[in-house]
Amino acid sequence: MADIFDLDTPALLPLLPAATRAALLAAGTPVRYRDGALVHARGDRKPGLSIVRSGTVRIGNPGSDGSYTTTSILGPGHCFGEFTIFADLPRTHDVVAIGDVVIDQIPRRRLMTLYHEDPALGFALLCLATRRIHALVEFIEDLRRLPLPVQLAKHLLAMVRRRPAGEAVTLVQDDLASLFGVSRVSIGKALRRLEGDGLIAIGYGRIAVPDREALAAWLAERTVLMPLDPAGPPQLDQ
């Protein structure tokens, strides 16, 4: 299973106090989806928040040539659907189950009741939305000014920062190609460039970063703006 990539933004559930988290999940209905099942389609307007309880989902859209562009892959604790609740906007992407998935579907009415009763939920949702905007601005800026190997190195560095030293990340090259909007061939060349410079070790569906400091130093030589390392989520009383 591929590691979660969501532009280095957090899941919703870890941002919540235990009591708020329990109340939120109790307000939802767990729905099971088989591998490849459509959870939501682009254009759906039914309002509600979806939280991944188990498994992973792929967020993306098909292209006219039969290709599929993956925006993100979300795992347990991650959520989607805020557009439909707070802005009455349609869903922008298809959401498809990867393997067996359980999604807690929370209707807008129940969510808004909790939202008004518990400030911790509103704060967490605002924090999540703000961090996503921050990550998107950073990502778009990288796409405009950095060559692909540098973009990829920056993304890998952000991923390994969130795990123990020496632990490899599990990634599918097709997903990376979709994330950066390039071909699998281009991603393969960028990965081999990084491997040739001794910065990563490529295995079957896995990428290891033997020396994070070396990767950071390589990036420092090729970009004026180094990757930002977001601190942990702020606390409600700060």
Rank of each mutant, 00 (worst) to 15 (best):
A2K: 11
A2P: 15
A2M: 14
I4Q: 01
F5P: 06
F5A: 05
F5L: 05
F5T: 03
F5G: 03
D6P: 12
D6T: 15
A11P: 07
L13K: 07
L13D: 06
P14N: 02
L15T: 00
L16A: 03
L16E: 04
P17A: 01
P17L: 02
P17M: 04
P17D: 02
A18Q: 10
A19C: 05
A22W: 13
L25E: 10
A27D: 10
P30Q: 02
R32Q: 11
Y33T: 01
R34M: 05
R34C: 04
G36L: 03
G36Y: 03
L38W: 00
L38V: 04
H40A: 15
A41L: 02
A41N: 00
R42V: 14
D44N: 08
R45S: 09
S50Y: 14
V52A: 09
R53F: 15
R53W: 15
G55E: 06
T56Y: 13
T56L: 07
I59L: 05
I59C: 06
N61P: 00
P62K: 00
P62V: 03
G63E: 03
S67P: 08
T70Q: 05
I73T: 05
I73C: 05
I73L: 05
G75E: 02
P76T: 12
G77L: 07
G77E: 05
H78G: 12
F80Y: 14
G81A: 10
E82T: 07
F83C: 12
F86P: 00
A87H: 08
L89H: 04
R91N: 13
R91G: 13
D94K: 01
V95T: 03
V95Q: 00
V95K: 00
V96C: 01
Q105G: 11
Q105C: 07
L111D: 04
M112F: 08
M112L: 14
M112T: 02
T113E: 15
T113A: 13
L114V: 02
G122L: 04
F123D: 04
L125K: 03
A135E: 01
D142V: 10
D142W: 15
D142E: 13
P149N: 08
P149L: 11
V150W: 13
Q151A: 03
Q151F: 04
L152D: 11
A158N: 09
M159Q: 11
V160H: 04
V160T: 03
R161D: 11
R161V: 02
A165T: 01
G166Y: 00
V169F: 04
T170S: 12
T170N: 08
L171Y: 06
V172W: 15
Q173T: 02
D175V: 02
L176W: 09
L176Q: 10
A177R: 06
A177D: 07
A177T: 01
L179N: 14
F180S: 02
G181A: 01
R184S: 11
S186M: 14
I187K: 12
G188F: 08
G188R: 12
G188W: 10
G188M: 09
A190S: 08
R193T: 05
L194R: 00
E195V: 00
L199A: 03
I200E: 00
I202L: 08
I207Q: 09
A208G: 08
A208T: 06
P210Q: 05
R212K: 15
R212S: 14
E213Q: 14
E213C: 10
A214P: 03
T223V: 02
T223L: 01
V224G: 07
P230K: 07
A231V: 10
A231G: 14
G232K: 07
G232S: 12
Q238W: 15
